[in-house]
Design a protein around this nucleic acid. Structure first.
Ligand SMILES: [Mn+2]
Ligand SMILES: [Mn+2]
Ligand SMILES: [Zn+2]
Ligand SMILES: [Zn+2]
Lengths: 145, 145
DNA sequence: TTAAATTTTGAGACTCATTTGCATAAAACT
DNA sequence: AGTTTTATGCAAATGAGTCTCAAAATTTAA
């Protein structure tokens, strides 16, 4: 819990930026949230706890958390970007159900290995990657139509 | 060339839709373009040939081409969706350079197999998937900073 | 063929997630 | 304290994508 804060602090210091109150609140809430959240959902989550942080500040903080290696913009659903924290969270891929919107997370060590091999072959330095598949989950396949 | 047209026509007929002039033009230009294009780029490409097709019609036609299995929404760059035609184009993943924007296409039979295994395991029916990695291409790694 | 019914289109208005400008507030220096 | 620098909140701006609607094209009915 304090680990993330330290990483963020160090990152900010390295960029001559400061760990302000809003930034602290945002970091805390990002790590309290174990979903794939939108900025708006995060905004509501923070507001419910009476902390006052503006949407603009949240939008401005997302790239900082991403650069610090703590956050990932993991998918896009219904015209909205969704994020998830990644510190201490194994890399995974997403199966997204077109019918009910459920997101299934799946480990992918194998995939990662193959990806790394390909990157080596093409001399491409991967910073981050995303793999998502859309379709129908088990339950939704059963439903008629 | 006429093959795509037939597929599109058949698809439209199956949905009681018609192969109109604008839809023909859009299909032709989509298959003339071998890039990963935005709707706006396609719009310009069509307009340069004096054909008059509105942006709205292009937006409306994209999902038709996708449902017909001819087009894929393959990546998102700088807040814009990018498409590419897929009929007669092997599935592939994208390495996207953060510095110069270059897109490298890579075969992925192996990846596909693994993905299918995972889908089977979770009983998830994949409709379409996307794999993209971001980072630095060979050339950009050499550049200083 | 002509008229009515249906489908598609183009143009522009609209939406809504994200970005930006700016006046104020907080923090760091002197 | 006063001065400079940085970050914040608010509200306005932006812009990709969607939607409305009257006009055109096409189909069907007569
Ligand atoms: Mn996830
Ligand atoms: Mn491609
Ligand atoms: Zn489902
Ligand atoms: Zn490059």
């Amino acid at each position: 819990m304090e680990n993330e804060m330290k990483i963020f602090k160090d990152f900010l210091v390295s960029k001559s930026l400061k760990l302000t109150r809003p930034r602290k609140i945002i970091l805390r809430e990002v790590f309290q949230n174990h979903d794939h959240f939108t900025v708006d959902e995060l905004f509501e989550q923070i507001r419910e706890k009476h902390s006052n942080v503006s949407r603009a500040t949240i939008y401005r903080t997302m790239p900082l958390l991403i650069d610090a290696g703590l956050l990932k913009q993991s998918l896009r659903c219904e015209a909205k970007d969704r994020y998830e924290h990644i510190y201490g969270h194994e890399k995974h891929l997403h199966f997204i159900c077109d019918r009910c919107g459920k997101i299934i997370e799946i480990e992918l060590k194998q995939l990662e290995n193959i990806l790394n091999d390909m990157a080596k072959e093409y001399d491409f330095k991967i910073r981050e990657y995303n793999l998502g598949a859309r379709g129908l989950c088990k339950e939704c396949q059963k439903k008629t139509e």
